[in-house]
Nucleic acid binder design. Structure first.
Lengths: 207, 207
DNA sequence: AGTATGTTTAATAGCTCTATTAATTTAATG
DNA sequence: CATTAAATTAATAGAGCTATTAAACATACT
């Protein structure tokens, strides 16, 4: 009965794998490569995680959950009116995606690579989704009744926010590649699109 | 000096490869699998296309060009006012993406798999982009001056249209997997989002 | 010191993939 | 029919990948 004294290797492997999987996807990343990057023997990866698939799943589940849990940060919105609330929500969702720009494409790819995985994730999401929906749905309905917002469902609103925010970071590599943007120009572009996304949605739901 | 009598195999290979590459991406598709699907010997693929990379590039270049050339169909918009024009453009862009829902993710993945490819495609796009921009930019500026549209650049407008349209088809597999939507429900959802995308953008650029 | 337990490595089996080469089949031509 | 070129296949080299196994190493405990 030993106490794990230094679980460093196990963790280093996980972190390195996470980085590589996010950079290059599941199939383009080999356990051999992970081991080389970590600086350990390739068998060690299988010692801790048994299979590559399993290692990936550990990472994927974490990231997937993380990503969806923090879809909308609803802590700091008390005391704001609806427009202010929405502005804050869209912005903080944008910032979250900005911090994890590679996760969406990882998810999309994983869904085509392994469609069976869907079922195992369904349950985990149900709660999160309904929580978000109900939290501000009442307020949305009030705004609509008051005629300050056009008829639109919560689902559609959320969908539009997520769409515009994630797609920026999907398209960005292509655009910045084609236009040869440097890091600074990219930053400017990102910040500009942050404002634009907020603006187009706020305006887009007006009556 | 023979005349190619039946180039069927060459073409069948190309079409099958296209389907598989779009379904599962570059690295998840093997030449062995393509051959099996075509019903020919695996060496035949290399006989016609030499390398898998090369076969992919042939397909990718075509699809990429096709996708960008038809980004905006500007044929049938004469005689319409600006709002009608924009409605038509967003809708037909949506329909184009709907017909080729897998191309965007193919492009995004290819850009991370092989960043060098960017340079070879730069030139091919310059023309297309500027053409689109200039065609309706004058009109957009007029609308802005007339106070019917808020201050927004052509680039931002195009960006928002492309974003909302492609991201639907990226997210769809995830959403429909989680919500277990059948084909009919998917159709309804897609059509609904088509309207919603048009609406949010038209509204989103109002003053 | 010696044993037990957990960690790490070396070696390798077994598979699949890409690409090439040589041989075989098919089709066209004089 | 014989010849020639193109299309197709069989066979295989060579590489990389995943996963397993047994051995070596390290560490803690009695």
């Amino acid at each position: 009965m030993e106490v794990k004294n230094n679980p460093t290797m196990e963790i280093v492997i996980l972190e390195t794998a996470e980085r590589l999987f996010l950079e290059k996807g599941f199939s383009m990343t080999s356990t051999t490569e992970i081991a080389k990057e970590v600086g350990c023997n390739q068998a060690l990866i299988h010692y801790y995680y048994r299979t590559k698939e399993n290692l990936f799943n550990v990472i994927f589940e974490t990231k997937f959950r993380e990503f969806f849990r923090s879809i909308f940060e609803l802590e700091n919105v008390k005391g704001l009116n609806f427009t202010e609330k929405l502005t804050y929500i869209i912005g903080s969702h944008f910032d979250m995606v900005r911090k994890n720009p590679k996760i969406p494409i990882l998810i999309f790819n994983e869904f085509t690579r392994n469609p069976d995985m869907v079922s195992s994730l369904k349950s985990k999401l149900a709660g999160v989704v309904s929580q978000i929906t109900t939290t501000i749905n009442t307020e949305l309905q009030n705004e609509i009744k008051a005629g300050r917002i056009r008829e639109i469902s919560m689902t559609d609103l959320i969908f539009s926010v997520i769409s515009s925010n994630i797609s920026l970071f999907l398209i960005l590599p292509v655009v910045s590649g084609i236009l040869s943007l440097d890091e600074q120009q990219k930053e400017i572009f990102i910040n500009h699109r942050r404002d634009e996304n907020i603006r187009i949605i706020l305006n887009g739901i007006k009556p």
